[in-house]
C-alpha cells in the first residue's frame, strides 16, 4: 500500500479546518503533544503537521487565488529517512507511512533539511522531530466505525477537498481522482516522488448564453407585450 492524501485545489477555500483538526487530533495523538510556544504572547507559534498557504497566480483582474494545504507527502523516495542517522525516521513497509520514533530521535534536524516540503518540525520542548502521521492512530482503530477510520483533516474538510486512500491501488478513489483530474505532485523535479497529489483547478465550465429576442428598447418591447396576460 501507498497510503496518502489527494488534495483538491479546485475546491480548497483555505479555511484552515484541516490544519486545526490535525492539531486537535494529534496533540493527544501518538506524536503528541504538539507544543505551542508563547500561546498568548508576542509571537504565538507552535508545532504543526499541516499548514495552509494561499497564492495568487497571474495579475489583476485575471489573477486566480489558490490555496495549498501542505503536510507530509509520505514520499516514495523519502530522503528524510535516508539521512536519518539514528533510524528514528522510517517509512513503514506495510503502508508507506513515514514516521518518527520519538524514543530514538536525537533532534539533529537533518531530516527536516532533507525534506523539500517543510513537513517536519522539531518540537523544541521534547527535542524530537515531529510530523504528519497520516493519523496512523485513527485509520487502523477498529473501535472507530469504518467511515471514521480516516485522517482527522480529511474527515473535517468542509469542501471535500481532501481524500485519503491507497495510491498504489489503481482502483482506489484517490488513484481514480489523480487519473481523472490529472493530479500533480509538488516539486516533481526533485525526484522524491511524493505520494500525496494535488488536483489542479478544474477548467472553467462552459456556460452557454441565451440570446432571447433581439435586444429592443422600451417602446418596441411594449408593443410586443401589448395585451400579454397570465392566468393567476
Amino acid at each position: 500500500m501507498k497510503l496518502g492524501l489527494v488534495i483538491d485545489m479546485d475546491t480548497c477555500v483555505g479555511c484552515h479546518a484541516c490544519g486545526v483538526a490535525c492539531k486537535q487530533w494529534n496533540t493527544s495523538g501518538t506524536l503528541g503533544p504538539l507544543t505551542d510556544y508563547q500561546p498568548y504572547g508576542a509571537e504565538p507559534n507552535g508545532v504543526a503537521f499541516n499548514r495552509i498557504r494561499s497564492y495568487e497566480v497571474g495579475v489583476y483582474p485575471n489573477s486566480k487565488t489558490v490555496n495549498m494545504p501542505m503536510s507530509c507527502m509520505h514520499c516514495d523516495t523519502a530522503e528524510c529517512v535516508t539521512v536519518c542517522p539514528t533510524g528514528a525516521s522510517y517509512k513503514r513497509e506495510e503502508d508507506g507511512i513515514v514516521l518518527v520514533d520519538q524514543d530514538k530521535c536525537m533532534g539533529c534536524n537533518l531530516c527536516a533539511w532533507a525534506c523539500p516540503y517543510g513537513a517536519r518540525e522539531l518540537d523544541e520542548d521534547s527535542g524530537t522531530m515531529k510530523k504528519c502521521t497520516l493519523c496512523v492512530d485513527r485509520i487502523y482503530d477498529e473501535n472507530l466505525p469504518p467511515e471514521e477510520r480516516q485522517p482527522a483533516c480529511v474527515l473535517t474538510c468542509p469542501t471535500g477537498a481532501r481524500h485519503f486512500g491507497d495510491l498504489e491501488d489503481p482502483d482506489s478513489n484517490v488513484s481514480r481522482l489523480v487519473r481523472d483530474r490529472n493530479g500533480q505532485q509538488s516539486l516533481p523535479e526533485l525526484g522524491y516522488n511524493p505520494v500525496n497529489h494535488y488536483l489542479p483547478p478544474r477548467p472553467k465550465p462552459h456556460a452557454e448564453v441565451e440570446s432571447g429576442a433581439r435586444s429592443a428598447a422600451l417602446a418596441e418591447r411594449m408593443k410586443g407585450w401589448f395585451g400579454k396576460a397570465v392566468g393567476r
Partner: peptide, 26 residues
Amino acid sequence: APPLQLRYHTHEPVPLRRSFLDILKR
C-alpha cells in the same frame, strides 16, 4: 497568568516503535 508554553494532551502518547533490528537491516 497565561502560560508561556502549552502542551495540551488528554493522555500520554502511545508510541509506535521501530524495532532495533529493522534499523539495522533496512
